[in-house]
């Protein structure tokens, strides 16, 4: 906490975009892996999970940022978790009311948003030190990045495992589905493939920059 909290850094575009790509919670920081793999067997489930987490992230960022000068340092983690749990309970009831089908598909993982380390991490690293506006923008960026990552994993698994995307069949009847991709091992494999792909791209880019520099 080097910066004085009363003189916040100006609100820049980076506040929003860092969560989207450069510090993407799933691909870069490897936080919140459990929901990212568990409910990403179809793109729709992944999207719903991403949106629910974003809602919790925004709500908790708002409240924690508002209360940041009142919460004693010693009990901050406990306070954050209770605030997050409150919003998760709300989301749980909202999804239950909106769509029973979705509620059953996501199962216990809605309630398990409480222990998504990406959300607690944001509370500790950002919302507790920054004013409301910054925290909301940053929370939105992180939530969008989390949703993006989930949908990217979910889309690949759905295309390979069901031969469809967002429930729309992509291939003809004769498409042989790869059941393994909708089963647990598929989640590990797809996330691993994305990480390898990003590592290769980053390497190429770095090599190109070196070539240009010299």
């Amino acid at each position: 906490m080097a910066a004085d909290p009363r003189q916040p850094k100006p609100l820049t575009r980076q506040t929003l975009t860092e969560g989207l790509w450069k510090e993407n919670p799933v691909f870069v920081m490897l936080l919140g892996l459990c929901p990212a793999l568990a409910v990403s067997n179809t793109a729709i489930n992944a999207l719903a999970m991403g949106l629910a987490s974003t809602f919790v992230l925004l709500g908790s960022s708002l409240l924690i940022s508002l209360l940041r000068n009142f919460i004693p340092k010693q009990v901050r983690i406990a306070s954050y978790i209770i605030i997050i749990a409150t919003f998760v309970t709300a989301v749980d009831y909202i999804i239950h009311a909106l769509s029973l089908e979705l509620y059953n598909a996501l199962g216990a993982f809605i309630q398990l948003i409480v222990v998504n380390c990406a959300i607690l991490g944001r509370a500790e690293a950002f919302a507790s030190k920054n004013p409301v506006r910054h925290s909301l923008v940053n929370g939105f960026g992180m939530g969008a990045g989390f949703t993006l990552a989930l949908v990217m994993v979910g889309a690949v698994r759905e295309i390979l495992g069901f031969g469809s995307l967002f429930g729309v069949a992509l291939f003809g009847e004769q498409f042989q589905t790869w059941a393994v991709f909708i089963l647990p091992p598929g989640g590990f494999f797809v996330l691993s493939f994305w990480l390898v792909l990003f590592a290769v791209v980053a390497k190429r880019r770095a090599a190109k920059e070196v070539a240009h520099g010299s």
């Binding site: 490897l30 091992p185 598929g186 989640g187 590990f188 494999f189 996330l191 691993s192 990480l195 390898v196 590592a199 290769v200 390497k203």
Partner: peptide, 14 residues
């Protein structure tokens, strides 16, 4: 090189 670290660990977990 590209598979080092987490990517390889995830594949093993798979």
């Amino acid at each position: 090189d590209a598979c080092m670290g987490t990517a390889a660990a995830l594949m093993i977990a798979g």
